[in-house]
């Protein structure tokens, strides 16, 4: 049977039974969106528990993939089954992408070629943004829910912390980890990108490099002076700054400890459900945005829309008045 034709329910059943091939295919359906994605969402919604969702972000070259790889190794050694969703930007010109996080995450190869990872205790999926910021905001939570439903916990979302959507995606995790490195003016950049507001844990990677302590000091200062206290403002929680060297594996345990501690504190403060609520709200909003976007496009390119565009072009009406007319159509007011 052609793989495109396999029904979603059947794949879902197989994925729950541990078939990673089926899980891989379901994730493709989610990425493509539309009715099959909704159907997967319905199924996963029922089974999803409360996996710990961790967002990891940082500038390109900050070593966040290597750090993610180290965390995955650590978790696997402790009989935990993590899933990783590695989000990378698509080329805005061609829509293509080179997704290389996987090789940065895989552990060091063993002496035996057959000894490279082959068990089903971890699942890594690369996802390109595909030029749809809105699509990503829908696809990521759906993929996370699917991972949760088939039994992966924790679920790590790794993104390049540059775009607002990526920041939102990470900020909507239970625990948001922001990775910085010495010598790149990272603390300042992160501040500009709005990452300081969403971070629950700061990691200074490449801590063996000169300047690592400066980054720590800068962060401390910003936390002190700018009243940046992460998302748990008013709770007394202060995002810790963890030093590590992902390439050697030094400090990985400390990073994990800080992440686990944060989850525990969220629980104690009774705030975890607030995070989840944020997440669900964001997802509903993103889904709505996407639906509206698509309807707006339909309208704009319809006969009515083209006429309104022409009107605005020959100055018989203003663009804002044209937009108001489109909105009326959209809301069925005309």
């Amino acid at each position: 049977m052609g793989r495109q034709l396999q029904p979603v329910q059947e794949m879902y059943r197989e994925a729950k039974g541990g078939d990673r091939r089926a899980l891989g295919r379901l994730l493709t359906r989610i990425e493509r969106g539309g009715p099959p994605a909704d159907e997967i969402g319905e199924l996963a919604h029922v089974d999803a528990g409360s996996a710990h969702v961790i967002g990891i972000t940082g500038a390109p070259g900050s070593g966040k993939s290597t750090l993610t790889g180290r965390l995955v190794e650590l978790l696997r050694d402790n009989d935990v089954r993590p899933a990783v969703l590695a989000v990378d930007p698509s080329s805005p010109l061609t829509g293509g992408a080179i997704l290389g996080d996987r090789i940065r995450m895989e552990g060091t190869p063993s002496t035996e070629p057959s000894g490279t990872r082959s068990t089903n205790d971890v699942f890594i999926r690369s996802m390109a943004t595909r030029g749809h910021s809105g699509g990503l905001a829908v696809a990521v939570p759906q993929a996370v829910r699917l991972f949760d439903a088939v039994g992966y916990d924790p679920i790590i979302i790794e993104t390049v912390g540059v775009g607002q959507v990526e920041v939102d995606v990470v900020g909507a995790a239970d625990t948001a980890v922001v990775v910085m490195t010495p010598g790149m003016g990272d603390a300042v950049q992160a501040n500009k990108a709005g990452l300081l507001e969403v971070a629950d844990v700061f990691v200074v990677n490449k801590a063996d490099r000169p300047g690592a302590d400066d980054v720590r000091r800068d962060l401390d200062l910003m936390l002190d002076l700018s009243h940046v206290t992460g998302q748990e403002d008013g709770s007394g929680y202060r995002p810790p700054i963890v030093m590590c060297s992902a390439i050697d594996g030094d400090g990985t345990t400390d990073v994990w400890q800080a992440v686990a501690d944060h989850l525990e504190i969220l629980g104690k403060l009774g705030r975890r459900h607030i995070r989840r609520r944020h997440r669900i709200r964001a997802e509903i909003r993103a889904t709505l945005n996407q639906a509206l976007d698509s309807r707006i496009d339909d309208l704009i390119y319809s006969e009515v829309g083209e006429r309104l565009v022409s009107d605005a072009q020959n100055a018989s009406r203003s663009p804002s008045s044209a937009a108001a007319a489109v909105l009326d159509h959209l809301l069925g007011r005309r």
Binding site: T66, I98, G100, I103, T108, P109
Partner: peptide, 10 residues
């Protein structure tokens, strides 16, 4: 000494 794996690809 450990082994080396290329991390930077592009």
């Amino acid at each position: 000494f450990g082994t080396y794996v290329e991390k930077a690809i592009v």
